[in-house]
Amino acid sequence: MSAFSRSRRTLAAVAGAAALALALTACGSSSMNMDSHSGTMDSHSPSAMPSMPSMPSMSTMPGMGSATSDGLADAQDGYRLSGLPDTLPAGQGAALRFSITAPDGRPLTDFAVEQTQRLHFYAIRSDLTGFQHLHPTLAGDGSGGWTAQLAAPEAGTWRFYASFTPDSGPGKGRAYVLSRTATVPGPQSEVPLPAPAGSATTPDGYTVTATVPGGRLMAGMAHELTVTVSKDGQPVTDLQPYLETYAHLTAFHAGDQAFAHLHPETTATGERGGPTLTFHAELAEPGDWRLFLQFQTAGQLHTAALTLNAAG
């Protein structure tokens, strides 16, 4: 049984006891909707589905390492994302250099390792296309400088996110996500967000299907999201370890680009995993979210993109 399930049973018991106490006192007085746009499918499924029992907010669960904000600010608790450019040339890769400034005004150099990395860096365009998940390198000279190799971006407005956990100082052990935007000049063509649907197929033929118990995700509540990977109608069982698990899942909110990392419950225990993976899913805002699932087979990294709707 996962920690997620044990926690849910414990909370259910506490809630039941509380309800009984209230009843005695009273007697004495008086869809999930998902889509497929990794470029291959665009279908729609109904959202009027029953709700499911929910978990408490991840921020109340010890040891979960959840981020403390939606990732839309460049500073929090005295930590600041600095050095990223305001503009970038279209059609050209770039070495993005930046640093995290600590509350004492000095560059932060002490980072905890989270899923094999000391810092995760993400880039996405305002229409939630062009997703990139990068692992920057930290300068070895003690300057606290990071370098991320960005693939050539298309014209438009981009947001860059730095996800990290200080390993010393006032924010030690607390996960942060900071971000800044940059403009890539040139003619821009907005890509409409695909409608929610239950599955998506990658360009190389992998199909990803996502479900939650009860079939509906509620904003601000935690759920257990199950993802199944198949190919040509057959379950995929050769998923390789990637970042300490068999898949990595990130979400961005349509409109404001709020960030959410859906923490894996399935850890990598061998060289072959799948086809079913579970994640702790908590999306703070109602509306559509764009999910990017990354997994690896035969040394190749695949990315599946889905749109999920969180009900208010």
Results as ranks from 00 to 15, higher is better:
S2K: 13
A3L: 15
S5C: 10
S7I: 12
L11R: 15
A15E: 15
G16Q: 10
A18T: 13
C27K: 11
G28K: 13
S29M: 13
S31L: 04
M32H: 05
D35G: 12
S36H: 02
G39D: 01
T40E: 01
D42C: 05
H44A: 13
H44W: 14
S45N: 06
P46A: 09
P46M: 07
A48L: 13
P50Y: 03
P50M: 03
S54M: 11
S57I: 04
P62K: 04
G65I: 00
S66Q: 07
T68G: 06
A73G: 05
A73E: 04
Q76R: 12
R80N: 01
L81G: 00
S82R: 07
S82H: 06
G83Y: 03
P85K: 03
P85I: 02
D86S: 14
T87C: 09
A90I: 10
A90K: 11
G91V: 02
G93Q: 10
A95P: 09
R97H: 04
F98W: 08
S99M: 13
I100G: 00
I100R: 01
T101K: 05
A102H: 00
D104K: 03
T109K: 09
T109W: 05
E114T: 14
Q115T: 09
R118H: 13
H120I: 13
H120R: 14
S126H: 14
D127A: 11
D127G: 10
D127N: 12
F131L: 14
F131M: 13
F131W: 12
L138I: 12
G140V: 12
D141S: 14
S143M: 11
T147P: 06
Q149L: 14
A152P: 11
S163Q: 15
D167H: 15
D167N: 15
G169I: 03
K172P: 08
A175K: 07
A175L: 10
T181Y: 06
A182I: 12
T183W: 12
T183M: 12
P185V: 00
P187E: 05
S189D: 10
E190C: 09
V191F: 11
P194Y: 04
G198Y: 10
G198Q: 09
S199H: 08
A200T: 04
A200P: 01
T202I: 06
Y206S: 04
Y206R: 05
T211S: 12
V212M: 02
P213M: 08
P213R: 10
G215F: 11
R216K: 14
A219T: 08
M221N: 10
A222M: 14
A222L: 13
L225E: 06
L225H: 06
T226E: 09
T226F: 11
T228A: 13
K231M: 09
D232C: 11
D232K: 15
V236M: 01
T237E: 10
Q240V: 09
E244N: 15
T245I: 03
A247I: 04
L249V: 02
A251K: 03
H253E: 06
A254G: 08
G255W: 05
D256G: 05
F259S: 01
L262C: 04
T266N: 08
A268G: 02
T269S: 08
R272C: 06
G274A: 02
T278H: 03
F279T: 00
H280F: 14
H280M: 12
A281Q: 06
L283Q: 04
D288F: 02
F292D: 00
F292N: 01
L293W: 04
F295K: 00
Q300M: 11
T303L: 07
T307F: 03
A311N: 14
A311G: 15
